[in-house]
Design a protein around this nucleic acid. Structure first.
Lengths: 350, 350
DNA sequence: TTGAAAGCGCTAACAC
DNA sequence: GTGTTAGCGCTTTCAA
């Protein structure tokens, strides 16, 4: 054993000349204890520097006052921001947090959840690749483990989620691009298989184009963090009609794409416009700031914790929360002149 | 209780017609068990979908196979990147992770550590405001709790740390600025009280200026996330000599400063140069990319876990690791012409 | 190679 | 109000 063995509740009891049960009552304020006794116990706790062992407590009490969080990656700040919200919420409610990441892999999702359940977390906050068909979530349902999905969104609210309206939001930002005069707009996403959000956002993209009487183009799917991630982009640039704008399924991808476009000799926003989705804080700091859909990621995390701890979840009623998104009209989106020459957007900062 | 009670090790034992002790031995591979018995036990585990309760295990075994992480904030991606490294390391070693953030507040540091110790984590990875004089760390030392500091750096390696050589790295980046022709270079930092790293980096700044025969200027300290954070910057711009470059104690601050400078009508890098410290990934994606010192943040987190789990830490020998930094020469740092007119840097992209 | 028994630290049920 | 008792689920002696 590495660190020194600590006093137990019995040591405190002995010193305060009470029973262990009474110490427990004082510590948890779980029953009325005579003021004098409380004082003696508190003094003993202080004197011995007593630190309750939560393993003992949770074994007996069958709850841990801990929550588990499962997100695909921390490399994308949108998840870090959400995590910050979850952490603050958990702390506000006196709960601790266990964290696992999955790298967008379904097998890793199962492992992460399993590890968290062995710890007997009181609930889970997670973002999964596909919320609609998901063995892990099916299991959680069967075992009645309270959980809330964040960012994931379901058609008929089959599971508890906290998200924005992805489809409507995507439609809005693409309509914004269309409003700027763009006609050839292409969507760039991660692997659809890995993100139900991306699929919804693609539908929003289609909605916007169709409403404007334009033909939606197939999405360009990029691999997650792959070295040759630039290839699909080169294809996209070569395709006809020559795109004047790219709508990316998330901000992190959008920033990468802007960098790659620049490296390929295209000027953003002068030659081509790029819009994102997420509203990560860093996107505000680029100049001009990234045009995007802003999700309240931190509040999404906080709301998930509220749902979980208010026990709204395991009373059987599925509570799905849709939070409001906003648009950020950054300067990175160039307006296209009324009749742009094909493949060349005029640089008019919006 | 919310979720259904699960089978215990005794249920498995009964089904496999062995004792609980034998099941434990199979699960932990802690003793040789007859092959036939192993098979029967494994089958029973499968059939019952047995999930060991880690609370029971840790109570008895006096170890949890969990690590605690304490960082100031997740809003700054440098900590998220480090956390990703810690998480991957912990997972690779079969450990789970508990997370707490402190908002750079010493009181919150104490609370976070206390909560983690009640969980009896096997070790801690943390970034504190001040590693040299720190009651919480003193306590951890006294109680022989294994821990490793990340990013914090100490003069005489009094405590185990993983960091870059902050002073030398800061000196290098400032020398880079000087090499570009800058003479009036001002340092912008968060509150010194909240970051020993910032103090070391200021010394590196001073080193560079003095070596070049220039007079170091006092640092401009900005409050963490305060709404009036722009004020010190306005002062800084007004001061004489008029600065042509700012060295920021971290990238997140640098990006904020670039945004604020732009809002104040200064063009970066044309009118004024800005350099950062950290090398957060997003900084690469801005155009032109942020000039900065790159710390291997993810590797720092991973190395901390290695130190912790290799038990290098609690064998008494303090192991401090200095990892190599690199410079990223972004385009955001303008070179100053040989004899710049006062307060006006010429826009020559480096 | 396996089982029986004890106990890790805590709290809930019951008695007084 | 407070103490006694029992036991949460697991591992670790010890004995066979």
């Amino acid at each position: 054993m590495s660190h020194t063995a600590r006093e137990t509740i019995h040591d405190v009891a002995r010193r305060a000349k009470v029973s262990a049960a009474t110490v427990s009552r004082v510590l948890n304020e779980s029953a009325t204890v005579a003021p004098g006794t409380v004082a003696r116990v508190r003094r003993a706790v202080q004197a011995l520097d007593f630190r309750p062992n939560l393993a003992g407590r949770s074994l007996r009490a069958a709850r841990t006052r801990s929550l588990g969080v499962v997100v695909p990656t921390l490399a994308n700040p949108v998840f870090a921001e959400c995590l910050a919200g979850v952490e603050a919420g958990a702390r506000a409610h006196g709960h601790t947090l266990s964290l696992a990441t999955t790298g967008y892999k379904a097998a890793a999702e199962a492992d992460a959840v399993e590890a968290l359940l062995r710890q007997r977390v009181d609930g889970l906050v997670l973002t999964v690749t596909d919320a609609a068909r998901n063995r892990v979530l099916d299991r959680l349902d069967r075992e009645r483990v309270p959980y809330v999905l964040v960012f994931n969104q379901l058609a008929r609210a089959e599971r508890p989620t906290v998200s924005v309206d992805n489809r409507a939001a995507a439609r809005e930002i693409v309509e914004h691009l269309i409003g700027l005069g763009h006609r050839a707009i292409r969507m760039l996403t991660g692997q659809f298989r890995q993100s139900d959000r991306a699929r919804l956002r693609y539908r929003g993209y289609c909605d916007a184009l169709q409403a404007a009487g334009l033909e939606p183009l197939p999405p360009l799917q990029m691999p997650f963090l792959a070295p040759d991630a630039r290839l699909p982009l080169v294809e996209g640039l070569a395709a006809r009609p020559r795109p004047t704008a790219f709508f990316c399924s998330n901000d992190y991808l959008a920033l990468t794409v802007i960098r790659d476009l620049t490296a390929l000799g295209r000027r953003v926003p002068d030659d081509v416009s790029v819009a994102g989705f997420d509203g990560i804080r860093i996107g505000e700091l680029t100049a001009p700031s990234l045009t995007t859909v802003v999700q309240p990621s931190e509040r999404i995390g906080g709301a998930a914790v509220e749902l979980l701890l208010r026990r709204v979840v395991d009373t059987g009623e599925v509570a799905s929360v849709a939070l409001q998104h906003t648009l950020r009209r950054g300067g990175s989106t160039a307006a296209v002149a009324a009749n742009p020459r094909a493949g060349r957007a005029l640089a008019v900062l919006s």
